[in-house]
Amino acid sequence: MLRLLTAAGLAVDAYVHVALAGAYDPVGAGISEGTLFRAQAAAAALAAVLVLASGRSRWVWAFAFLVAASAVGAVLLYRYVDVGTLGPLPNMHEPVWYPKKTVSAVAEAVATLGAAVGFVTVNRHPTPSSRA
């Protein structure tokens, strides 16, 4: 159940970022915000597949946590703080909530919590083949 919940949160994150990427292509001179959205979507999709396929690995849970936590951290940071441009990264400050952004943030938070629990609990109950 934990694997499904975490993967679902990551899948929603990926879907929303792909859906919004085109609208954010004009934002940024070096690396566009749309490009960053596509990279986030790819990382979230990969993490979701890995969690479903190999949820017994601490590395998989750690990767899923980093992907989800970085996404929810970024959306909260850029919602409430005008960071400005950081090197080639555009100024992504957007001080509003709208439905897709809210859905994505909630999904990322759920995936972050799920991945943290998965990381802490994986290998706590060894399978019969790993007890030997």
Rank of each mutant, 00 (worst) to 15 (best):
E94C: 09
V16M: 13
V18W: 14
V27H: 05
L2N: 00
L66S: 06
R38W: 14
T127H: 07
D13F: 12
T85M: 07
D13P: 01
A44K: 10
A45H: 13
T102A: 01
V120Y: 09
G84S: 08
A48S: 01
G114E: 07
G84E: 03
A23C: 05
W61I: 08
A68I: 12
D13S: 01
V18G: 11
R38P: 03
R58G: 04
P99T: 12
N123E: 00
A44I: 10
V103G: 01
T127D: 03
L52Y: 01
A64P: 00
T121R: 14
G84R: 09
A39G: 13
G84I: 05
P90T: 09
A21G: 04
P99I: 00
V18K: 11
G114D: 01
S129L: 07
T35F: 15
R58I: 14
A132D: 11
V49A: 04
G114S: 00
P128S: 09
F37P: 12
A14M: 06
A39F: 15
D25C: 05
E94A: 14
W97E: 10
L77M: 11
F63D: 12
V83G: 02
M1C: 06
L36S: 09
L89V: 15
R79A: 04
V117L: 10
P95E: 08
A64N: 02
A71S: 12
I31F: 08
A116H: 00
L10N: 11
V122E: 07
V72A: 06
N91E: 12
S57L: 02
G84W: 12
Y98R: 10
V60C: 03
A43I: 12
K101A: 08
A44G: 02
G55P: 03
A62L: 04
G9C: 06
A21M: 04
R58L: 03
A115N: 05
T121K: 08
A107G: 11
Y24P: 03
A115L: 08
Y98W: 12
M1I: 12
V106G: 10
E108D: 00
K101M: 14
V12T: 07
T85E: 14
F65R: 06
L66Y: 02
G9L: 14
L77T: 09
A47C: 10
V27G: 04
A111T: 09
L36E: 15
K100N: 13
D25E: 13
K100I: 06
A109H: 03
A42R: 14
K101P: 06
A11F: 03
A116P: 08
L5D: 08
G114A: 10
R58N: 00
H93P: 06
Y24L: 07
Y15D: 11
G73R: 09
D13E: 13
T127K: 10
Y15K: 02
M1N: 13
A23E: 13
A71G: 15
A21Q: 08
K100A: 13
A132C: 08
R3G: 08
L113G: 03
H93C: 06
T112G: 14
Y15Q: 04
T127L: 06
S129I: 05
A53D: 02
A39C: 14
E94V: 10
S130P: 01
V72K: 01
G73Y: 01
T35N: 07
K100P: 10
V110L: 02
V110D: 05
L113I: 11
P126H: 00
A68L: 02
R79Q: 03
A48P: 06
G28C: 04
